[in-house]
């Protein structure tokens, strides 16, 4: 499903490329589940609204980008920081062809859920064995 082998358990900055506009790009934590009808992906992108997600599929590479709306409470200074904020980006190399028109994307509470239905010919066909 994917060609990157890093096992992150926390929000981590993406290795490359460095953004020209400054700031950082993070790789969203992702769950991927495969079932008979297709593949579901869940990506954590807190601070990203549904209109700020950009998904492209090109040459079996699925790229997901999310522009974050920075949290800046008015008239307050950041005094203690445990997490950083920045745009999200991550690419996955898909092992098979998916129809880009049938990919469904839903953004809810900062989690992007992608549903990639398998092409009909890629679905496993069950062959019945007849008795002699």
């Amino acid at each position: 499903m994917s060609n990157d082998i890093a096992h992150a358990t926390d929000k981590t900055p993406a290795q490359a490329p460095e953004p020209a506009a400054g700031g950082r790009i993070y790789r969203p934590l992702t769950d991927i589940v495969e079932h008979d009808a297709g593949v579901s992906m869940m990506l954590e992108m807190p601070g990203v609204g549904p209109e700020d997600v950009d998904i492209t599929l090109e040459n079996r590479v699925l790229t997901i980008r999310g522009r974050v709306a920075l949290t800046r409470p008015e008239e307050l200074q950041l005094t203690h920081a445990e997490y950083g904020e920045g745009d999200f980006e991550r690419a996955f190399a898909l092992s098979e062809d998916f129809d880009p028109d049938r990919i469904e994307a839903r953004m809810h509470d900062g989690v992007l859920t992608l549903t990639l239905p398998k092409a009909p010919e890629a679905q496993p066909k069950k062959i019945a064995v007849k008795g002699a």
Partner: peptide, 25 residues
């Protein structure tokens, strides 16, 4: 440190304090 969930950012001002946390999903 990373085992702590959720990570919080704390913002302070003269009249208020704000705590932000990422809790997706």
């Amino acid at each position: 440190d990373r085992a702590v969930f959720p990570a919080v950012n704390i913002w302070q001002g003269a009249d208020a304090i704000a705590i932000t946390a990422e809790l997706p999903g």
